[in-house]
C-alpha cells in the first residue's frame, strides 16, 4: 500500500509537464520545422527564436513591464491588506461581516464585465497605459484574496500574544511590526505568492489598460503572432520565457509554502 502511493502524484506531474515540454520543444525549432516535421524533440536545434526576443526591445520590454506592475501590485495589495486582515481577525465593528463579503464579491466580478468601463475610467484619470493603472486595477481581485488569506493566518495566532505584548508595555505599532508580522511571516509569504500569481497571469485587464508603454508580454505575444503571420516558434519561445518568473517565485516561497501550510497547527 505504502509503495504504490507515489504513483498518483507521479502521473499527475507527468501530465502537468507534457504540455510544457511540448512548448519548450517547439521553442527550439524553426517555424518551418514545426509545420512540416512532427518529432518528439527538435531535429534541427536552434536558438534563433530566443535570440529574436532578447534583441528586440518590443519583446523584452514586455517582460520588464509585466514584472514591474506585478511586483507593484503585490506590494500594494499586501501592505493594504495587512491592517485590514488584522482588524477582521481581532475586532468586531460596524458592518464588518458585510464589508468582508462585499470585498469578496469583487473577487467574483468577471473581468470581462469590467474591461470596457475600466478603459474609460483610467483614461479619464490620465492613468491609461501606465504600470500604476494595471497595478491598481489588479487590486480589485488581489486585495480581497489577500485579506482573506491573511485573515485566516492571523486568526490562527492566539489572542494572548497581543495581550501579553501590551502587558509588557509594547505600543500597538511596535507590537504589530516587531512581534506580529514576524509571527505570520509565512502567511505573508503565501499571500504574496498568490497576489503575484494572479497579477502575473491576468491578461484581459492588463491588455485593455495599455497601448504601448506598459504593454505586458502576454499582450505583445497575441499582437505579434497576428501581424507577422503565425510565428509558432517565436510564440513558443516567448511562452516558455513567461514560465520563468513564476518558477523563480515558487522557488523562493517553497520553504514558506511548506512552513506556511504547517501554520494551521499553531
Amino acid at each position: 500500500m505504502k509503495k504504490i502511493k507515489w504513483v498518483v502524484p507521479t502521473f499527475y506531474i507527468i501530465f502537468l509537464m507534457l504540455p510544457i515540454y511540448w512548448l519548450l520543444n517547439m521553442s527550439f525549432k524553426s517555424t518551418t520545422e514545426i509545420i512540416n516535421v512532427y518529432s518528439l524533440w527538435p531535429q534541427d536545434f536552434t536558438l534563433d527564436n530566443y535570440k529574436t526576443i532578447f534583441t528586440d526591445s518590443t519583446w523584452y520590454m514586455g517582460y520588464v513591464n509585466s514584472i514591474t506592475y506585478t511586483v507593484f501590485n503585490t506590494i500594494i495589495s499586501v501592505s493594504a491588506a495587512l491592517p485590514a486582515a488584522y482588524a477582521f481577525s481581532r475586532y468586531k465593528f460596524l458592518g464588518d461581516k458585510h464589508l468582508f463579503f462585499w470585498l469578496l464579491t469583487n473577487r467574483m466580478a468577471p473581468p470581462a464585465v469590467f474591461a470596457l468601463p475600466f478603459f474609460q475610467f483610467y483614461s479619464s484619470v490620465n492613468l491609461f497605459d501606465t504600470h500604476v493603472a494595471i497595478a491598481l486595477s489588479h487590486c480589485l481581485f488581489n486585495i480581497p484574496l489577500a485579506v482573506w488569506i491573511l485573515e485566516g493566518f492571523m486568526s490562527a495566532v492566539p489572542k494572548e500574544l497581543d495581550e501579553t505584548a501590551y502587558v509588557d508595555g509594547y505600543s500597538f505599532p511596535k507590537f504589530f511590526f516587531k512581534i506580529f508580522i514576524p509571527t505570520i511571516a509565512a502567511g505573508i509569504g503565501i499571500t504574496m505568492f498568490f497576489c503575484f500569481m494572479f497579477s502575473w497571469v491576468e491578461l484581459l485587464l492588463a491588455k485593455t489598460l495599455t497601448a504601448t508603454i506598459a504593454k505586458p508580454i502576454a499582450a505583445i505575444m497575441t499582437r505579434t503572432s497576428s501581424t507577422s503571420g503565425y510565428e509558432l516558434g517565436l510564440l513558443a519561445a516567448a511562452g516558455s520565457l513567461t514560465i520563468i518568473p513564476g518558477a523563480v517565485v515558487i522557488y523562493f516561497v517553497r520553504n514558506y509554502i511548506a512552513k506556511g501550510f504547517a501554520m494551521g497547527r499553531v
Binding site: 499527475y12 506531474i13 502537468l16 510544457i20 500569481m197 502575473w200 497571469v201 491576468e202 491578461l203 508580454i217 502576454a218 505575444m221 497575441t222 511562452g239 513567461t242 514560465i243 518568473p245 513564476g246 518558477a247 517565485v249 515558487i250 509554502i257
Partner: peptide, 11 residues
C-alpha cells in the same frame, strides 16, 4: 505542481 498556476492564461 504550482507551475501551471503561474503561466499567463493566454500562454
Amino acid at each position: 505542481m504550482s507551475m501551471p498556476l503561474l503561466i499567463p492564461w493566454n500562454v
